[in-house]
Design a protein around this nucleic acid. Structure first.
Lengths: 133, 133
DNA sequence: CGTATGCTGAGAATGGTTCTCGTTCTAGCA
DNA sequence: TGCTAGAACGAGAACCATTCTCAGCATACG
């Protein structure tokens, strides 16, 4: 598989970054190197890299998608109140995967997984006396 | 915690449904019972129910959110090519949770989790000779 | 009865992402 | 070098699920 210059630059920015980046943020950074780099191209190449198994993606509560290199395996704690999301240093899946049987996958080729715990952060618990119980 | 009539109807529709429903679908169904039920109210009450620990939510690749009762614990296999998502009858988290330490949670109150395997479905593997390797 | 508070519906606004389409780049070839 | 076909690109418009705004209505309470 050969990557064109645009996708390669995109992947480079993602790998240098120490956090997940959104499409908009990636666009900002890529424009610094090539000012005419378009937003559509950013999203086009993000899809390409994702299908190629080089980039992973997840959606934040506010609707934007954030991207990271596939090899980074972070999971998250996300507040359903304020939408704040922070890394969670655990992974429920061993390195060898879940031992998914071929029966379960039925020809599906896994590339990456997302695991997220949703709940209420400390400050949203205080401001919202709704918590069930 | 007391639920008003609108949130209660919403939760009822979700519990009757045998699949996750989007905000738009919920609106459609709720209008059948009360034709003037507004879309804003659907989303308002979805947020309310989510914060109350009664409803869970996840985002599909096409950007819409789908909702289910908290007690339903399904996970998914989602194609990064076509966006198709189907239930996966496994859960990486035991009933007792992950044994998350208080140190990790730092006051965060977990309500539910999402687990999703992203990859390429059989037909997207065929149409896209991109697969890395 | 009068007022405060909260919930609601209708429609406008928002904003990340995708689409359109004319242009530009690249590869292959003579 | 000059030419052509096809792929990739950029700019801006379009899309659409969701959120916001705000006036109207219901309920509770004095």
């Amino acid at each position: 598989m050969t990557l064109g210059p645009r996708p390669r630059a995109l992947l480079g920015v993602l790998r240098e970054a120490n956090a997940e980046l959104s499409g908009q943020e990636l666009h900002e950074r890529l424009k610094q190197a090539s000012p005419r780099h378009g937003l559509a191209t950013v999203y086009r190449n993000l899809r390409l890299l994702q299908r190629s198994g080089l980039v992973r993606c997840r959606k934040l509560p506010n609707g934007e998608s954030v991207y990271a290199p596939l090899e980074r395996d972070d999971h998250h704690l996300t507040c359903v109140g304020c939408g704040h999301s922070e890394p969670l240093p655990i992974c429920p899946v061993g390195t060898g995967g879940l031992g998914l049987t071929k029966v379960l996958l039925q020809g599906f080729k896994p590339l990456f997984h997302t695991f997220e715990i949703h709940g209420l952060c400390r400050s949203c618990q205080q401001s919202e006396p709704l918590a069930h119980g």
